[in-house]
Design a protein around this nucleic acid. Sequence first.
DNA 1: AATTATTTTTAGACTAGCCTAAAAATTGAT
DNA 2: ATCAATTTTTAGGCTAGTCTAAAAATAATT
Lengths: 219, 219
Amino acid sequence: MVSQAEENYLKAVFAISEKEGKSATTNAIAATMQTTAASVTDMLKRLADKNLIAYEKYRGVLLTPDGRRIATELIRKHRLWEVFLLEKLGFAWDEVHELAEQLEHVQGDALVDRLDAYLGYPKYDPHGDPIPDAQGRWTLRQQVPLVTLQPGERGTVTGVQDHSSAFLQYLDQLGLGLGVEVEMLERIPYDQSARVRAAGKTELMLSEKVCQNLFVKTN
Amino acid sequence: MVSQAEENYLKAVFAISEKEGKSATTNAIAATMQTTAASVTDMLKRLADKNLIAYEKYRGVLLTPDGRRIATELIRKHRLWEVFLLEKLGFAWDEVHELAEQLEHVQGDALVDRLDAYLGYPKYDPHGDPIPDAQGRWTLRQQVPLVTLQPGERGTVTGVQDHSSAFLQYLDQLGLGLGVEVEMLERIPYDQSARVRAAGKTELMLSEKVCQNLFVKTN
DNA sequence: AATTATTTTTAGACTAGCCTAAAAATTGAT
DNA sequence: ATCAATTTTTAGGCTAGTCTAAAAATAATT
Ligand SMILES: [Mn+2]
Ligand SMILES: [Mn+2]
Ligand SMILES: [Mn+2]
Ligand SMILES: [Mn+2]
């Protein structure tokens, strides 16, 4: 049995370490979980006892195969529920994450698989993040931050780096959602902001911060 | 804040006391929750401190208005999720309860109301139990145990008393689901079993136990 | 290399929720 | 009314998970 708290820690370790294959530090986990380093050390011992992480004092941690499987299933559930909340219940993309944080802990293999089928086996969640399949396989995507596009280059919005409500609502306001075509028109050297054409017509001024947090697939 | 454990206790008190308006005893709650009387007493003190129950030592408990509201919302969520699992995900009526026990604890007013709308504001759950509306109002139904029907009388199956998998699966096997028309043909004095016509054609022999656990609305 | 700064772990304490065993209160039976 | 049976509460202890403060280990600087 794995508790909800344990699941959340595994997810945090996955998010931190799986990016680069490097181990997750106590402080990094504490920051992600919004808790203290002492609480993290406590939990790391428990997770190591259960063989869900490889832990050496002062050396950070990595997931074991079991730990990685649990984290992957949790992410799968989280993102499927996000799709459900958006597609079926009509929530906005900035409202689904908090609810999915709760729904991801509901246990039941049949539930996940039936939900997956009901949603049509989606490969990406409302933020463009990939959804692992029932075997834990990921469908990764070629995407780059908008900031890397040269003037004249075009792309399609495929995801966000920042998942905050503030950012997502601002994108809504700008008319920038997943699937929208964008063309880089000009980079302003003074502040690294960008002039961009969206959906073939609207012309927008985007700050460097926005351009760093928006992923596009180049056409 | 009300924990999941507290919510479950309130639901148990509701189930026991709201039936007759009489107070729920420590032992009755312990039996429902499958725990010890000592644990119940512990929790009753906490719930009384939060003004969710009226508790006098050795005298049993009743819900306060706040407690009743929380219990009602929990039942509403539970039964709406059961409808979702059956109608949308295709689970059988004997599979939905366990999952709903988990889903009922997901917090979010908007979630419940959107789910309700998505399901078309159902008034009854897959077992025929009433679903309170957003204002906590119940749509009660005239129904009696099948055992009370006299030979020649007809009715429509509207619910079950026993929610166990064993009973529900047996009903499936007999072709007795919600909405099926039944006619009492004969009561056997020897063992109180009954000969019943189902859906206008099939003739069934039902034990007294089955007849007590099946609710019908007389036509 | 020695010292300082940072990170991590340990020590000790707290709450929620559960348990068993014993004591107290209530109910039922003579 | 008294005694016995039952129900309920209390007492004490356990685990999971959290915290703060202090100690220990590691990393960075001089
Ligand atoms: Mn999310
Ligand atoms: Mn997401
Ligand atoms: Mn149920
Ligand atoms: Mn039900």
